[in-house]
Design a protein around this nucleic acid. Structure first.
Lengths: 340, 340
DNA sequence: TGGACCTGTGTGAGCGTTAACATCTGAGTG
DNA sequence: CACTCAGATGTTAACGCTCACACAGGTCCA
């Protein structure tokens, strides 16, 4: 030990030696154990600082089988929703003392999912978090039998129903209702919905919310147009709409679709906000500067992140029973695209 | 051992027992050691599969002091650049057999940086990757003395110069030159630059590239307008420009700025693409549907990610000498905003 | 035919931590 | 004043793996 000249980082025993106590006492100090004399504690802390000691987390994980790390599985896309969710969640996790390990997935196949999960389990994560926007995930998560809690971040209607699956999400349905309500309140009696890809939970929920609100208002919901998420897709839909009978009002499943619609209408000489009202969903960066600025629905990802952590804490505290899903309410942001 | 009924996961010794070999032989099989008889290897692999054995990575990390994990420090923003970089890098890392642990930072102070780095070192990451868009990082990274390689993902002119700092990035300067060249080639002799915040390397480099290209073409670069990154900021600049003498051509430091400019000009009745040409930077999702569709510069983040991994591999292979920075060339995407 | 040298395998000692138990001290109680 | 009991500390044994070494048996060449 005396011959080691700085080669390996100091271990607990080195601290113990320097402080004139046993390594166990050092451990107690580190873990905040109550029965350590204040004076001893001080001596140990001093030695720790002096030696620049840092606890070896591998050794710790080996014996405790915990790692203070959460595994996050998320789709490999730079799309607004998943990305914002990831960033917000990481922030919340870190604040709660967890570290986050990420696995992005190009596709949520059962295989790739299993691989990611196994990796995380190998590395002893305390829990798994799945950012689960599509129904592909449903099957992938379903087969999962893991010894740690799993939290879904997703609006996932279907999964919500299943017992034992923890989940949090933004209330997409409510958001869609707010959007639709806004248009109806402006006097439009026919609100068309340009829907997102129906294997996405968000898209399903927004469609459902729109329909609900129409029914609640006593108007018949026209047949929705199902599209993708992209502005390209919205543009294409817009062209067709402009060529035929123009709807008075459109609720687009996301801002990109709305952007594409605006583009198509512009090309066709249709004035958005006057000839047709449009509401989007997401309040993406820049939506305030679309032409015209887009009325849309904003989701609170920060709150979503901390909600996920709350649920996780509960699950790890042992309360794993069937949890009610927790939903964050979104809010509408009114701009010119829905009428002046 | 016989009394353990599934309580703890199988260990290497369990596999050894089941296969009738020593734990060391199991280890050899796992690590692909050559001198194991094929028959023995098969027997071991069979036992592994049968027991559902999975190697405990904490124990492994304890003795090897490696964890097959990379630590990524990244700004906590949903901005296009950092986000795309993160996603692309994770993908590349995973493909190369590494796992990625993430720490987002709201601000790159020396303190928060140190905390993140310490955490990663605690957890035995093999290397550190810093997505370093601002010069705040410069100081934060500077003081860093870590026992593992550090790779900067950044265009960071200044850092590039320093020896021993590994870095990769997109060639922002080239991108700016391409954008400026495009405008000059269209006959504009005065290209205004609406610059991004100058504590961002990308903004600095784009400014520098623009200036270089102007000089190379023998035109005088007008005084640049320094703004933020946001569309709001672009809008504000646009209003002022529209109120005064309108420039013929504008190179905006990113697409959001360009979007804001388009908005302001629209409000003022200035026709973008005719009265004024605009080029952006990023090719954000949706840029093809701005009004008018935006000519812009696209960055290849996928290539950036794999480049970072390449550099990392080299550094870990021991070749830590002063590395030339590696730059990914961007490309220009021409649309209507720069003239029909 | 003997030793030098490979190949395949086993043995034992850590790695740095926590958990369980053992020990020692001094204060409080009847 | 012996007796219990809580508080403070030390001792020992895992945790599951890799590494360094030992060792058996075979091959090869002098």
């Amino acid at each position: 030990m005396s011959t080691d000249t700085g080669a390996r980082p100091p271990a607990m025993s080195d601290v113990a030696l320097a402080a004139g106590v046993s390594h166990q006492t050092v451990s107690r100090v580190l873990n905040g154990h109550p029965s350590v004399r204040p004076e001893t504690r001080l001596r140990v802390q001093d030695a720790i600082a002096r030696l620049g000691y840092r606890r070896n987390s591998a050794a710790r994980a080996l014996v405790t089988r915990r790692s203070d790390t959460l595994g996050v599985v998320t789709p490999a896309s730079a799309l607004y929703g998943p990305t914002s969710t990831l960033v917000a969640f990481e922030e919340a996790a870190r604040e709660a003392g967890w570290y986050v390990s990420v696995a992005t997935m190009r596709r949520f196949t059962a295989d790739s999912m299993r691989a990611a999960v196994e990796h995380f389990l190998d590395h002893g994560v305390d829990a798994l978090v799945v950012i689960a926007p599509t129904s592909e995930v449903a099957s992938a998560v379903q087969g999962l039998d893991v010894p740690v809690p799993v939290v879904l971040i997703s609006s996932a209607i279907e999964l919500r129903e299943r017992e034992g699956v923890l989940s949090v999400g933004v209330d997409q349905r409510l958001g869609a209702r707010l959007a639709t309500r806004h248009l109806l309140a402006r006097g439009h009696t026919r609100v068309l919905h340009v829907a997102g890809p129906q294997d996405w939970f968000d898209a399903q929920d927004r469609l459902a919310g729109w329909r609900e609100e129409c029914e609640a208002a006593g108007v018949t919901a026209p047949k929705p147009v199902v599209a993708g998420w992209s502005a390209d897709s919205g543009y294409e839909v817009g062209r067709k709409l402009a060529a035929g009978k123009l709807p008075e009002a459109i609720f687009a499943a996301n801002d990109q679709l709305a952007l594409g619609l605006e583009h198509a209408f512009w090309d066709a000489g249709v004035r958005v906000g006057q000839d047709v009202a449009i509401v989007g969903f997401d309040d993406e960066v820049g939506a305030a500067h679309y032409l015209p600025p887009l009325t849309t629905v904003r989701q609170d990802f920060v709150r979503l992140g901390s909600l996920a952590i709350d649920v996780l804490r509960q699950a790890l505290g042992g309360l794993t029973g069937r949890e009610a899903p927790r939903l964050v309410p979104p809010e509408i942001v009114v701009r010119r695209s829905s009428g002046v």
